[in-house]
């Protein structure tokens, strides 16, 4: 039964994969093309050379942007893990009065699109003097209802005997948190970490608003800049930029795919 289905499934899989992956593959190929290749709409570069990659670093301060993106993404990732883990711990393990009310408060944040709040946020950031600062791109994203729910869900799977054993040994609540709960739930922390890094690395609108000079700009804004500067002249250079920008996230995705898939369905549905 399964075997015979393969004959239908493989061709379909191959065709869909080709179609879906084509833009990425093509961007990769173009990044090695000369201007003439591009003009001729060639499919493969006539000569493979790295000159586009050298030039992209000369055109825009891409190194700087990469570093900014890396700092911002790592910052959000760590901040999110800490803030969400704390909140999730309270929800999962501390029976306090008003827990349902606070939980509802968290749920309500899911209903506010960031874009609807961005105008006052922009004004707030200006008032804080956080324009062109890493702070403006990291701190507002530390608290995350989705991340809190994801972790809470996993925290609740910690056998209560483990917590009680720690209680009998005399561990404080906080020590139980970081010595028992966090190590037990490593996998969901990794999932949330990957998710946080990915989404931050790919953030576009907000960095566009809060950065006005090259100093703190992220790669995504760099891509837009590159495209506006280079569009008439050389697509090869632009695509080299694109490839450099997507490599970290694609790698992360490929490594963490299984985890991410599990985590997303759990956090979303339960």
């Amino acid at each position: 039964m399964m075997k015979s289905r393969g004959w239908v499934v493989y061709p379909l899989l191959i065709i869909s994969s080709l179609l879906l992956f084509f833009p990425i593959v093509y961007a990769f190929l173009v990044s090695f093309m000369s201007g003439t290749d591009v003009m001729n709409r060639s499919f493969l570069p006539s000569i493979w050379n790295w000159s586009n990659y050298e030039r992209v670093f000369e055109t825009v301060p891409l190194m700087r942007y990469l570093m900014n993106s890396f700092i911002v993404s790592t910052g959000v990732m760590l901040g999110q893990l800490v803030v969400c883990a704390f909140a999730a711990y309270a929800f999962a393990f501390i029976p306090f009065k008003g827990r349902n009310a606070v939980f509802l408060l968290f749920i309500s944040t899911l209903m506010i699109p960031w874009e609807a709040a961005m105008i006052p946020n922009f004004l707030t950031i200006q008032a804080f003097g956080w324009m062109n600062s890493y702070l403006s791109m990291t701190v507002p994203f530390f608290a995350l209802a989705f991340g809190t729910f994801l972790l809470r869900q996993h925290f609740k799977t910690v056998p209560h005997e483990l917590m009680e054993a720690a209680d009998i040994e005399g561990l404080s609540k906080f020590a139980t948190f970081y010595k028992v709960v966090l190590p037990y739930c490593r996998t969901s922390l990794v999932t949330l970490g990957i998710y946080g890094f990915l989404t931050t690395w790919n953030m576009y609108l907000w960095p566009l608003l809060v950065t006005t000079n090259d100093e703190k700009r992220t790669v995504q804004i760099g891509l837009k800049q590159l495209q506006t500067v280079e569009v008439a002249t050389d697509w090869g250079v632009v695509m080299a930029g694109v490839i450099i920008v997507i490599i970290p996230t694609l790698l992360l995705l490929f490594i963490g795919q299984k985890q991410l898939q599990k985590g997303l369905t759990q956090g979303a549905l339960k």
């Binding site: 056998p159 005997e161 483990l162 054993a165 009998i168």
Partner: peptide
């Protein structure tokens, strides 16, 4: 519990997997 000078063995042992 920690002040009661007791130790406890649980049904599923409560071993820390990590």
């Amino acid at each position: 519990p920690s002040k009661r000078e007791i130790s406890m063995v649980f049904q599923n042992y409560a071993l820390y997997p990590h």
